[in-house]
Amino acid sequence: MDAIRIENLSKAYGKVWAVESLSLTVRQGELFSLLGLNGAGKTTTIKMLSCLTSPTSGDAFLLGKSIVREAQAVKSVIAVSPQETAVAPGLSVMENLELMCGVHGFPKEKKSAKIQELTELLDLSEILKKKAGKLSGGWQRRLSIAMALVSEPKILFLDEPTLGLDVVARSELWDLIRSLKGHVTVILTTHYMEEAESLSDRVGIMKNGKLLALGSVEEIKRQAECEKFEEAFIRIVKGVSV
C-alpha cells in the first residue's frame, strides 16, 4: 500500500487556487520533498494532508485513510513539525516531550521509555532541563522534531525544518532526517536545493499550486537537461519547456 495517495487535491482561498488538481503517490518509507518558490502551495498541501485545513475538492489517502472522511484516523498515523518552531516556550525540554506523550495518551511506563529513546536518538540529554524558549534555533528545531516523533508516526511532515539554521545545525538535522529514512515516510518541504538533493528519494516541484515535475533528483536533472539540480529547478519553475 502507498503511504500517501493524492487524487486531484485542490484548495482555493477565495478566487485564488493555492493548490490545483494535485495528484501523486508516496511510497512507504520514502523521503519525498516538495519544492517550490514562496506561494507555490507546499505548506497548503501539507496542511491539507495533515487535516489542518479541508481541501476544496479532491481527496488524499494516508495509509488508506481519507483526509476528508477519516481525519481522526489520519491524525493517529501522522505527525507534523511545522514551519515555525512549535514548542511550548515556558516548559523545559523534558516537559515538552511529556506534553506530547500526554496528549497521545501514553501510560507512565511508555512515556518514560519514549522520552529516554528520543533523548538518545536526538542527543537531548544535556538540555532536558532547559526551558525550550531559551534554546538556540537549532536545538528548538531538534526538539520540535523529537516532539513530532513521540507519537511514533508512520508519516512525518517536516515543513522547512532547517529554515534559518546555521551550517552545523543544518548538517546535524540532515543526519537525523536521514536516520528516519526507511522507518518513517517523510514529507519534507524546503527552499534549499542542496537539502532536497542530499536527502530525498524523490522530489516534486510546485509552482502556483500545480505540480510541474516529479521524480528522483537525477530524473529531474535529465528532464531539464541540466547538470546541477538547482539549475534544473530554476529552469522548471521559470517555465522553460522540459
Binding site: 495533515s50 487535516c51 481522526q72 505527525a79 507534523v80 511545522p82 515555525e84 512549535a86 496528549v103 497521545h104
Partner: peptide, 13 residues
C-alpha cells in the same frame, strides 16, 4: 500565533 497549536491540532485531541 505560534505553531504549537497547529501541532496539537494534528494530535488526536
Amino acid at each position: 500565533s505560534s505553531s504549537l497549536l497547529s501541532r496539537l491540532y494534528t494530535a488526536p485531541l
